[in-house]
Design a protein around this nucleic acid. Sequence first.
DNA 1: GAAGTTAATCGTACACCGTACCATCAATTA
DNA 2: TAATTGATGGTACGGTGTACGATTAACTTC
Lengths: 228, 228
Amino acid sequence: MAGKRSGAQSKRSQRTRSAEQPRHDPALSLERIVATAVELLDAHGIDGLTMRRLADHLGSGAMSLYWHVDNKEKVFDLALDSVLEYRELPETAQSRDWRGEVVHMLQDWRAGMLRHPWSASLLPRRALGPNILRRLELLSRTLSGAGVADADLNVAIWSLWNYVIGATVTRASFDLSDEDMAAAQQRLALVSEHYPTIERSRLLLDDDWDGAFRKGLDFLLDGLAPKY
Amino acid sequence: MAGKRSGAQSKRSQRTRSAEQPRHDPALSLERIVATAVELLDAHGIDGLTMRRLADHLGSGAMSLYWHVDNKEKVFDLALDSVLEYRELPETAQSRDWRGEVVHMLQDWRAGMLRHPWSASLLPRRALGPNILRRLELLSRTLSGAGVADADLNVAIWSLWNYVIGATVTRASFDLSDEDMAAAQQRLALVSEHYPTIERSRLLLDDDWDGAFRKGLDFLLDGLAPKY
DNA sequence: GAAGTTAATCGTACACCGTACCATCAATTA
DNA sequence: TAATTGATGGTACGGTGTACGATTAACTTC
């Protein structure tokens, strides 16, 4: 099988030879493609990204994309990963306040995905991109530095990961159109009837999502590392 | 706008008048449609469900489905919700061992979704179906009965929810084809190089997902309700 | 009975999708 | 100059969701 440029990451790239352009310089590039894909996803949602539309916005023909990208799935992969870049806190100053670091990174994680709600719905079906791995590595290092034993690291990381992903996916699923929101409101009427405890705790009405995320995260960290 | 049978839940149904058939009895029914959709999703994954194929398996024409269902999205909604039915533990015996109850229900939740991996990837974009609400109500009631104050209930529920959803979505995303698994293995080679801490803790290699889920859940419950 | 209404089914058609295949052209290399 | 390669894109194919309208069978009302 294999397309024209399958295998590793294709593209020209390193080859320090000289400061010459590859050939002319190509109209398309992976970077431009991914950036435009993210724009389209932001603007029109996950179903609003089609190869033809993407090509249009890039001023090229649809099939030209396929020289740079194996298929549409890859575009999704790249778009998702591009949203998950993370710049570390400027001054780590040697592991001081590990808890603050963890909270910061996880809040940033969530915030980054919520800025692009489609990313949450993309997540379930994709493997781990490099940026996710980088975040996991960072998290591991921080927890490890805080004294968490290697044997416990696994569970700790997964717990935090699960919490963040779940929170993000959930929050994103509530970012619905006004129409859907109206339907949801309507459903809440039924809720009060059949689900009294939910009603009493105002579970679905309280919209301080960020605060709830932070609080729950604190509880989880309490449970994970009561001794540190 | 509106299709022929929009509005509430359509269908004939209650009307206790007499034990007579609605008309003849229709070849199609919401129940049959949903059940078959779940079969197809189980067998061929999320992209394997098309209206035409669904109709074929039901022995009907594709457009016939649209009398019972507004559109394909609704089929997904119904399929997802149908997977999330829950039978309570037979003998609740008045709130004894609330923690055991919570763990049971959340494990069941996760297990149910993992039995139908497509359900996890469906979740992010759908609103709360009745069965999810029922589970949330149950969870609320149990925690409330265990003494959690109404003010804290909100955060507690969301934390548990987040954890379960995240764990399920993550686990499901690793249920990939053999081919994808091979690619993942290959990526692990790079991991060892660039992500030493991940490598050391064997984060991605340890596959005792169920155990990790249980342990992390315990940690979370420890943090949530240390005093109960 | 007849006539009208409604529940339910489905064939056809349309716009759009991802992408295989192949032709094309510009720049580089020989 | 000729050959090679990087990069682009037109056309076409098989598939999708579903709008529209025709069709039939059962029930309701006279």
